[in-house]
Nucleic acid binder design. Sequence first.
DNA 1: CGTATGTTTGACGCGAATCAATTTTCGTGG
DNA 2: CCACGAAAATTGATTCGCGTCAAACATACG
Lengths: 220, 220
Amino acid sequence: MHTIRAISAPFPSSLPSGMSRTDVSHLGVTRSFAKGDRVYSDGDRITHCYKVVSGVVRVCKSLSDGRRQIIGFYLPGEFFGIEMGAEHSFDAEAVVDTAVVVYKRCASDVLATGGELAGQIMGAMMGTLERTQSHMLLLGRKSALEKIAEFLLDMADRTGDEEPIELPMCRIDIADYLGLTIETVSRTLTQLERQGVISVPKGRRNITLRDRAALRGLDG
Amino acid sequence: MHTIRAISAPFPSSLPSGMSRTDVSHLGVTRSFAKGDRVYSDGDRITHCYKVVSGVVRVCKSLSDGRRQIIGFYLPGEFFGIEMGAEHSFDAEAVVDTAVVVYKRCASDVLATGGELAGQIMGAMMGTLERTQSHMLLLGRKSALEKIAEFLLDMADRTGDEEPIELPMCRIDIADYLGLTIETVSRTLTQLERQGVISVPKGRRNITLRDRAALRGLDG
DNA sequence: CGTATGTTTGACGCGAATCAATTTTCGTGG
DNA sequence: CCACGAAAATTGATTCGCGTCAAACATACG
């Protein structure tokens, strides 16, 4: 898959895959990534931090035997790549064709200088921390049904409560985010559909929440 | 349990349980908490941030049905209570009798003013974020054996690699930190002991790591 | 000592993983 | 536009790790 297609949000197209840069402000440049492209890898030297302009980025960590945990999905307007050490501890990849703003300095440099961007990054980091910590309760203590219910409500909330929700990620990504297998994700969605709580039309990527109260009751 | 006893580290005793304050610097006051005391609760207004002086603090989140996830243990020198919103999203409790430095302002205020403490809190927050994110891989994708192995190695590392490790927390806490039950924690420790990888003498709170290489091989 | 709390151990069951097809969707080229 | 093949998603049968339930044992404290 090497053509550029805007799936979840529009962004400048007709650029060579993942390579072009366009000035967007004095603070950074935009950069495009095709679906599946790496933004950075576990072990890379940290040189920048990033903000999603359009598309979706997943940040994840893998074991040598292939098991993978997705730490978070980043939607337009959200910062990622903010880490402390000299090297990244995670992989960041484009879930769909994606555009990001690349800031020239890594987070700790920006923060040291203060200013508007520093405040934004600080807020982003604290928000990420809280989101991450709440996700630990899901991973450690919730059932498959509760995990899926929380995930759907969260995605609806973050994408502006428009129905249907367009899930940009495949089942594998959902499974690796929730600590499940793709089979369990699929079965649980089918179960919710049969109960009339959601509906999942043909493409299987759009989901309508028919009964949010029921979902909230299920999410633990 | 309302008497003060230093279990994991010495600190000023002979104080009425959890109530006394002693000046420690112009930046904050120390405050003591008896084992099990609440430092703050989920939903409390955020007014301070904290650093452990002695003892151990657990930060956790609970569901209404009693299921609980421990987000992290905080050892001497580590900051906690750093959150973004107006209210805490978690509970913080003393695992053993514990002394903390209480800083008069919440994290965002301190950070806004800059200075030495701001830098320390920034670093603490980024460190917490990375530790938390790595823990998600454990919660979502590791087996009971791998979880226990990683936990033991991590505790050994954080407490200065002295043998035996003195675990300040009970099995319930370990279980709720690793997303397991106490029975599974106990069985797994017994299994490791039978394999000669660790030894767990009488009190059951001290653990000697007899074969760290084997543990590292088990931790995924 | 006796009681409360914490830990270990055993028997059993269930939820989710695994193994294995089948079906649907979607990109590609004739 | 349709046919083909690859990738994604669903579904079913089965297994198994860990949770649940229950009881015995150990430890700490009054």
